[in-house]
Design a binder for these strands. Structure first.
Lengths: 212, 212
DNA sequence: TAGATTGTTAATCGATTAACAATC
DNA sequence: TAGATTGTTAATCGATTAACAATC
C-alpha cells in the first residue's frame, strides 16, 4: 500500500469505478475484465489497469477482477471503511437539502451537528439533528471528533468561517461557497462550485454544434 | 472566433477566470497581467496566456489585460450573454434548494417550470414558480423554449426521464442523479455527482498526511 | 494445455511550461 | 525611448495508450 504519487485524474475516476462496481455487484456480476469494464465506462482497458496499479494488484491473469473484492479494495482506498463525522455550517436551502440526504450516512459520513448564524432557527431540528449557534462550533468539534465541515454559507462569510474552522483543527472542508478558500496545505478542501458547473454546461451548449 | 479544439482542462478553468475577474472588477482593479492573475489563481502566466489564446487575443503587450473587457469576453465564450430557459425535474430537497437559488438568474439561467411525480405538491409554488405534473413536460418545453433540464430525481427514474427529455428535444441536462446518462452525442450532460465529490474529499483526507 | 487477461514497460500523445520575438 | 508584457513557437513534462512477457 505504499504509493508514490497518484494524479488527480486517477482520483477523479476512482468514485466512478466504485459506482460501476456497485451496480455490477447489485446485478449479480461476479467478475469483470478491464476490457469489459472499460467498455461500460468509456475508458481503455490500459487506463483502467494503470489506474488500479497505483494502489496494488487486484486482478488475476486470465480471469480478470473479482467484482466484490475490487469494490471493497477501492472503497478502502477512498477511505470509506472509516466513519467520518460531519458538521454542517449554514442551514439555508442547500444546507437543509444536504442534511436531509441520508445516503451519505450509508457511506460512513455521519452528520453530527448543524450550525447557523440565524438565531430564529436555533433549536429546530433536521432529521433529528439540532441547529445550533455558531459560537458552539469549537466545543462541539472537540466533543464529537469532527473531521469534516460542510460549508453552505454565502461566500462573504465563508472565508472567515473557514479560517476559524482551521484554527479549531478541522481536517477537511466540503466547500459549497463560491470562493476559493485559502487554507494550510494539510487541510483538505473539496469544492462544489455549482455556478461553475452550470457555466461549463453553458459553454458546451454554446459549442456543441461547433465541436461535434 | 474559429477554434480548433479546446481541452476539457481549459474549459474547467474558464469559470474560475470569470469569477476572479468579477472579484477584481468589484474591487476596482482595471488591468491585470497574466503574471499577476497567475499568482492569484495559483497558475503559471504561460498557462493563462495559452488558455486565452484558444479563443482570441484579449491582451496588449506591455499593458496586460483590461479586466472589464476580459471579463466580458470570457462571459461570451461561456455563452453567458444569452438567456437560457430551465426546467427543474424533481422538487425534493435538492430541487427546492436549486429552485430557490436566485443567483443563477443573474447569469441568465431562468427557471421557467418545476415538475414532480408527487401529485400532492402539484400547484404549490417555489419562488412563484408552479410545480406541475410530469405529463406536462413536453408541451411546456415547446411553449417556453426550454434549453436546459435540471435533473434532481433518484437515479432509478433519472435514466428513463433523460430518455424522454431527449425525445422532447432537450439540448442540455444538468444531472444531479447518481448515474451516467446515456444520451446522443449532441445532447450536453453536465454531471454534479455529490457523492463522488465527497469520496474524493475522503480520499484526500485519508492520504493528506502521506501525500504532503 | 490453450486461451484469456493481468501488471508493467515502452511508445505516443497531449498539456503545461519556458523562451522569445513582436510591440504597446 | 525603455520596460513590460503579450501571443506564439519550442521544449518539457505527465498522462494515456499500446505492446508483451508472465501466469492463472
Amino acid at each position: 500500500m505504499k504509493r508514490v504519487k497518484v494524479s488527480n485524474n486517477v482520483i477523479r475516476r476512482l468514485p466512478r469505478y466504485l459506482r460501476k462496481l456497485d451496480e455490477l455487484k447489485a446485478s449479480g456480476v461476479g467478475r469483470i475484465s478491464s476490457f469489459n469494464l472499460g467498455q461500460q465506462l468509456g475508458l481503455t482497458p490500459s487506463q483502467i489497469r494503470q489506474d488500479f496499479s497505483c494502489f496494488g494488484e487486484f486482478g488475476q491473469q486470465g480471469y480478470g477482477y473479482n467484482v466484490k473484492y475490487l469494490y471493497e479494495e477501492i472503497a478502502k482506498i477512498l477511505g470509506l471503511h472509516k466513519q467520518h463525522n460531519l458538521i454542517l455550517i449554514g442551514a439555508g436551502h442547500l444546507g437543509q437539502a444536504l442534511a436531509n440526504y441520508v445516503n451519505f450516512e450509508r457511506r460512513g459520513f455521519v452528520l453530527k451537528g448543524i450550525f447557523d448564524i440565524d438565531t430564529a432557527i436555533h433549536g429546530q431540528k433536521i432529521r433529528g439533528i439540532e441547529i445550533r449557534p455558531m459560537e458552539e462550533i469549537e466545543s462541539f468539534m472537540r466533543d464529537h471528533a469532527i473531521d469534516i465541515a460542510v460549508l453552505t454559507i454565502p461566500k462573504a462569510e465563508a472565508v472567515k468561517i473557514a479560517d476559524e474552522l482551521v484554527s479549531f483543527g478541522i481536517k477537511a472542508i466540503w466547500n459549497f461557497a463560491h470562493v476559493d478558500l485559502d487554507v494550510p496545505e494539510d487541510t483538505v478542501v473539496e469544492n462544489v462550485h455549482l455556478s461553475e458547473s452550470l457555466m461549463r454546461l453553458s459553454y458546451n451548449l454554446a459549442n456543441s454544434s461547433v465541436t461535434d
